[in-house]
Write a protein that binds this DNA or RNA. Structure first.
Lengths: 107, 107
DNA sequence: ACTATTTATTCTAAAATAAAGAAAAAATGA
DNA sequence: TCATTTTTTCTTTATTTTAGAATAAATAGT
C-alpha cells in the first residue's frame, strides 16, 4: 500500500474539499483556517508538485481573471489514484483505532 | 497543534495496541501484520527514540526472560502527551473528512 | 567449553520530505 | 510609469524516512 506523508494527505483533502477552486493560495488558506496549520509557501507548492509527479493530482493552468495581480493560477484536481490513496489511509487508521484496547496508560 | 509524522502516528498506535508488550520487534511485527507496512529495522528504532525525546513515549528496560537470545528488551509506553497527540490528529482528519463534498472528480 | 543460532538493539549513511522565505511573474490602479 | 496585489517558482537548510550492517546477549547442541 502506498502511504501519503502527513502533508500530502492534508493537501489532498484540501484539494478535494475546494473542488473547482483548488490552487496554491486557496489550499494554503484552507489548511490554515480549517486545520489550524500555518504552512510556509514552499510547504504547499513543493508537495503539490510531488503529488502531481506521483500521479495523485493533475493540474491545469487557469485562464486570466478580471481580478488584479498574480501569475496565472494553477488549479489542481484529485486523480482516481489520489482518491484511492486517501481512502486507503483512512481505512487503515480507522482499523488501527478499532484495534485499540480501552485502558491506555499507567504512569 | 502538534502533528505527528505518519510513521510516528503508526508507531504510537502500535504501542497503544501492544500494551505491556511494546518493544522494537513487536512494534515492527505489528505494523507488518496489521497495517501491511514492512518497515526496516531503523525505520522503527529511529522514530521510537525521537518519540521518547519529544515526550510522546516513555521507556523502561526489560528484565531478562527465560527465552533465548537478544539484548534486553526496551519496552515503550504512551505518555499523556502521546495520547493527546493521537487524539488530536484523529479529530482533525475526522473533521476534514466530514467537510468533503460528495462529488469527487471529473476527468 | 565452544560454536552456531536466535532475538534484540544501536549505529550510520543516503534518500526523501518538510520548513522557510526570497525572488520572479503578471496584472491593476493611481 | 510605478506602487501594490496576487500568485508561482526557486533555493536552502532541517528533519524524517529508508535500509541494513554492526553489535550485544542469551541459549542449544555437540
Amino acid at each position: 500500500m502506498k502511504l501519503p506523508s502527513r502533508t500530502e494527505e492534508l493537501i489532498l483533502l484540501a484539494v478535494w474539499r475546494l473542488e473547482e477552486n483548488a490552487y496554491g493560495i486557496t489550499i494554503r488558506r484552507y489548511l490554515k483556517e480549517e486545520a489550524g496549520i500555518d504552512y510556509s509557501i514552499g510547504g504547499i507548492y513543493v508537495p503539490l508538485e510531488r503529488l502531481v509527479s506521483k500521479g495523485m493530482l493533475s493540474s491545469r493552468q487557469g485562464d486570466p481573471t478580471p481580478a488584479r495581480g498574480g501569475m496565472s493560477k494553477r488549479y489542481f484536481q484529485l486523480t482516481a489514484e489520489g482518491v484511492a490513496v486517501l481512502r486507503d489511509i483512512r481505512a487503515l487508521t480507522n482499523r488501527l483505532w478499532d484495534n485499540l484496547p480501552d485502558i491506555v496508560f499507567h504512569n
